[in-house]
């Protein structure tokens, strides 16, 4: 198990390094310059060069990369060129929106998908199972932004039950903050559930035909008991894998949801700063997310070892 963990850790660190180089180069390869955008279309080349120099953007790329990496390693994420705000503060502010949004969306998706997917698997070949499979297919086909707009129009504009968008900070009113998050979480969670239901259904179907489930039934367990006591643990491996992968998908989903519902979250901040070519804000924030996603997948890998002794013993 120790070797397994070390191998995974080495892969984790390697992936983080490659990601850091990629994000550093990609944002620059996109072209554009924060100084040019800031100064507008009539700015002179001299003015732009002077501002670029002030920002340190005229330094050689390796120097900029090294400087950024060293500071990141020391916990200094840098500061915005335009507002001089520390990136760490910007990120912290927005995590208050993004973490509850992403985690609640994921949790909602899981809470819907596991029972519904299991139910659909147990009723395969029946009308109820087919209906659930169809609903799941429709859910997968629905773009998350469309779901968001529909929910916003229905619950916000037509019924007036919930805000159509915007954000009330936790410090102002926690009820207001929850109200701001309900529709975005529903949009995200329902679409995520639609995807997960298919995987849960397929995984449960797979284990239900396995010998150990039949053996469990033979020793007197009911179908449900066999499924819960023996089947689900084995079905959990592909489900955990897909949930791990969905974390990355989730971040993509929050970009759109934060736009549709005007939430001041991390994804919207990144998008705005990409457009403004705020390279330090973008690369530091994206790097944090990449580390998070890779860490989640690292933990998923570790979880494999715990869930399946064959994996840890094989390594």
């Amino acid at each position: 198990m120790a070797i397994y963990v070390l191998r995974k850790l080495a892969f984790f660190l390697g992936a983080v390094f490659v990601a850091s180089v990629a994000i550093f180069l990609l944002i620059r390869a996109a072209g554009g310059n924060v100084a040019a955008i800031l100064l507008g279309k009539d700015a002179t080349a001299e003015a732009i060069n002077a501002l670029s120099h002030t920002y340190g953007l005229d330094r050689p790329l390796p120097v900029q990369y090294y400087d950024w990496l060293v500071k990141m390693a020391q916990g200094d994420l840098g500061q915005s060129f335009r507002t001089k705000e520390m990136v760490s503060e910007l990120v912290t502010e927005r995590l208050g929106v993004s973490i509850p949004l992403a985690l609640s969306g994921l949790l909602l998706g899981i809470l819907i998908a596991i029972p519904v997917g299991t139910y659909a698997a147990r009723n395969v070949g029946k009308l109820s199972g087919a209906v659930l499979a169809l609903i799941s297919q429709i859910g997968i086909a629905v773009p998350v932004f469309w779901a968001g707009i529909l929910l916003s129009v229905l619950f916000g504009v037509r019924l007036g039950w919930l805000p159509t968008g915007g954000w009330t900070d936790w410090s102002q009113s926690w009820v207001g903050a929850i109200r701001s998050l309900v529709l975005p979480v529903l949009s995200l969670g329902l679409i995520m559930a639609a995807v997960l239901i298919r995987y849960v259904r397929s995984a449960v179907l797979d284990v239900m035909n396995q010998d150990y489930v039949r053996t469990a039934r033979a020793v007197g367990m009911t179908r449900t008991q066999a499924l819960l006591n023996v089947g689900l643990r084995n079905a959990s491996l592909p489900i955990v894998t897909i949930i791990g992968l969905q974390v990355a998908e989730l971040i993509g989903g929050t970009v759109i949801i934060e736009m549709v519902f005007s939430l001041p979250g991390l994804s919207r901040m990144i998008l705005a700063n990409v457009a403004a070519r705020e390279v330090i804000v973008v690369q530091s924030t994206v790097m944090l997310i990449i580390v998070f996603v890779i860490a989640v997948n690292f933990l998923v890998d570790l979880l494999y070892g715990i869930l399946d002794p064959r994996i840890r013993n094989a390594t």
Binding site: S152, G156, G160, T164, G165, G166, M259, V260, F261, S262
Partner: peptide
């Protein structure tokens, strides 16, 4: 002043009385 980059969302907010 709420910054709502999605135009439709802005009109929705107006129509909803927010």
């Amino acid at each position: 002043v709420r910054i709502v980059t999605d135009g439709t969302a802005g009109l929705n907010a107006l129509e909803a009385g927010e």
